[in-house]
């Protein structure tokens, strides 16, 4: 129940925050790239790099277990994620301490031994740089 309350609070907070921020107007440039488009990108900002690493099936493959809400437009060709794990939304509100969020991606079993999330850092599934990029991106959603 406590979890649910925290979750609801986070959702409300996210709603309030996004309302307070000026939402960028949707244009073609605001649509996130698909996996294929990611591989063709010559250069990308940290946020896009993080997104691309997150959706790549050989890298983060986050969508296997998580549904993700994004401020930018979801690419139509990309199916939504699974429901094994909690949805990824309002990450900044849920993890005000960025280091904690990073630790969660690096090895979620440290904070919860029963977590089934793969330990991306401990098992070297992602490089430290790739984890940084994912964390940077998570802070934007």
């Amino acid at each position: 129940m406590r979890k649910l309350t925290t979750f609801c609070a986070a959702v409300v907070a996210a709603g309030a925050l996004s309302g307070a921020l000026t939402m960028p107007t949707a244009s073609a440039g605001d649509t996130l790239p698909t996996d294929k488009e990611c591989s063709k990108l010559k250069s990308a900002d940290a946020e896009t790099k993080g997104w691309c690493t997150a959706i790549n099936r050989r890298k983060g493959n986050c969508l296997a277990c998580h549904i993700v809400t994004t401020k930018k437009t979801w690419p139509a060709a990309l199916p939504p994620g699974g429901n094994v794990a909690p949805p990824l939304l309002s990450m900044q509100q849920r993890f005000p301490d960025k280091a904690k969020l990073r630790a969660q991606v690096w090895d979620a079993t440290q904070s919860n031994p029963h977590s089934v999330m793969p330990p991306f850092g401990r098992h070297k599934m992602l490089t430290e740089g790739e984890i940084d990029a994912i964390v940077a991106w998570l802070y934007t959603i």
């Binding site: 969508l63 296997a64 277990c65 199916p79 994620g81 699974g82 429901n83 094994v84 089934v116």
Partner: peptide, 9 residues
Amino acid sequence: HNAGKKIRG
């Protein structure tokens, strides 16, 4: 633990 859950589709 996760039987019945969706892994992607």
